[in-house]
Amino acid sequence: MRGWLRHHRQSLAAALRRVARDPLGSLLNALVIGVALALPLGAFVALATVERLVPTSATEPEMSVFLDLGATRADADRLRAELARLPGVRQVRFVPKDQALAEMGRTEGLAEIVAALGRNPLPDAFVLRLAPGAAAEDAASRAGGLAKVAKVQVDTAWVQRLQSILALGRAATLVLAALLGVGLVAATFNTVRLQLATRRDEVEVSRLVGATDAWIRRPFLYLGAVQGVLGALLAGAIVAAASWYLTPFLAGLARLYGGEPTPILPPPMLIGAATGLAAILGLMGAWISVSVHLRDRR
């Protein structure tokens, strides 16, 4: 058991030494893996960023019901009850026209325009929040048929479309990640195969003097795993650099959508998970490579 642990330690040290002894070759290997991993990693970060720009409450469909300019407070009270009875409606909030104007005045760039207005051009309105997945279009058409309702606007149709696009993006990213994961296995398979070619004599002699396949395989497994880890860390660095470059552009976009212009650094959890996964995939590539080599020379 102690000998086994010692060999694990020695194998890891040997793998690190081998990487350090050939910095250029190791860097290029890591770059191949890093660029491949940076694509899905970057896509995940981009998707997460877009998701943060979209107000989370908006995933529940929302619609605005604008009343006639001449509608009275009594009309509004009657409509509140009628709107609340519509199917799928969870919450009804009344926005009086004075409040709407005040809110508008607080919006950057509109304050002066609001101040210049002689009278309030805005109608009273209701904001309805529907249950998630409720048929917003159906509720909207029924609300539009009520007396004293001037216009119904489904506010969150664009959000729902965006959510669908994001879901598609997430699925596509998973497909991309799976494909590039296979690529990573192939890349380490090849590097380890080259290593095996240069160390053919060592493998042969080790076998002849009583080394088990597991013992022979171990240093190569560590080499594959170390390469995967280096590739993943490089991928993290690539994505972080790209995020840093893109953040100012994002800030402009964020203001447009009322989101927070925060930097879009890849979350440490994601880098950690990617690193662990890359280590496992590198190990798999090395495992296949050594197994093929040993089988062919049995």
Partner: peptide, 24 residues
Amino acid sequence: QKLLHDRNAFENVVLPLAAAGVAP
């Protein structure tokens, strides 16, 4: 002979013991 030329005499001879898990 099958001696390994990327390591010294000691390292060549120690290989069977290392493979058998003998303490260094």
